[in-house]
Amino acid sequence: MRKQIAAANWKMNCTYQQGEKLLDDILKSKPSLQPQQTVIFAVPFPYLIMASSAVANENNVSVAAQNCYQKKSGAYTGEVSVEMLQSIGIRYCIIGHSERREYFHETNADLAAKTDLLLEMDIRPVFCCGEALEIREAGSQNTWVEQQLQESLFHLPAEKLTRIVIAYEPIWAIGTGKTASAAQAQEMHAFIRGVLAAKYGKEIADEISILYGGSVKAANAKEIFGQPDVDGGLVGGASLQAEEFVSIISALK
């Protein structure tokens, strides 16, 4: 059975003290997790060690970095290497988030390099893909997302691909007033799984968790997570509210 994942992406939010309290409130209230269920907290870099310590005795709970740099080391002031993350025990790392692609101009080639470094250090990439509003309105979303997957992941052998978690972000449904339905989420998730199957075979494609990242809330999580190809969510704003995120965890299959 594929892992069902509730991943909290705090982005650039919370002071250290607020983050400690938020984690404590969530961990005290979350439901017991089944073997196939995982909760991930993607916290800002300064909080990684604090968060790792907080979840150390929790079953099926991990900490993720929100990004990494695509070079091993060197004169890259302000950047964080994969080796640094590995040295403090980080097990997951988000790459290719729509905000990183848009604001920091990350390319598919950059993400291929990050993927290779993460896998080399035994850190699982949470690879984000998705289309903007103009691409969706032009009906080109499938071609766009397929190209993201091909250029960043398809150089991998099958055994490495199964270490990837994919997160689909319909950028057009985040902060635009437009809403992606559960059916639209399932349609794209099924397409992504089909693209993976065409390259690697159905058995490999069926092993890969594909998360939905389009404004998941407690109110819509159960319906979205209930779709056959949706394996949980990459949650932004709602993950900053303990009660809300606990409800989202409870919606996992």
Rank of each mutant, 00 (worst) to 15 (best):
K3Q: 15
I5V: 12
A6W: 03
A8I: 00
W10A: 00
K11C: 06
Q18Y: 07
L22M: 07
L23Y: 01
D24C: 10
K28F: 07
S29Q: 11
S29R: 13
P31F: 01
S32D: 14
S32W: 03
L33K: 05
S52E: 12
V61N: 03
S62A: 10
S62I: 04
C68K: 08
G74H: 08
S81V: 09
M84S: 11
M84G: 02
L85T: 01
Y92W: 04
E99Q: 10
E99V: 06
E102K: 12
A109F: 12
L118G: 03
L118R: 02
F127T: 11
E131P: 00
A138Y: 06
A138I: 06
T143H: 09
L149F: 00
L153Y: 01
P157A: 10
T162N: 04
R163D: 01
I171A: 11
I171S: 09
G175K: 14
K178T: 11
Q184L: 13
Q186L: 09
E187K: 08
M188Q: 03
M188P: 05
A197M: 08
A197Y: 05
L211M: 09
G213D: 10
G213H: 02
S215I: 04
S215E: 09
A218H: 04
I224Q: 02
G226W: 08
P228T: 10
D229H: 14
G233V: 04
Q241A: 04
A242Y: 01
V246W: 00
S247R: 15
I248P: 01
S250E: 13
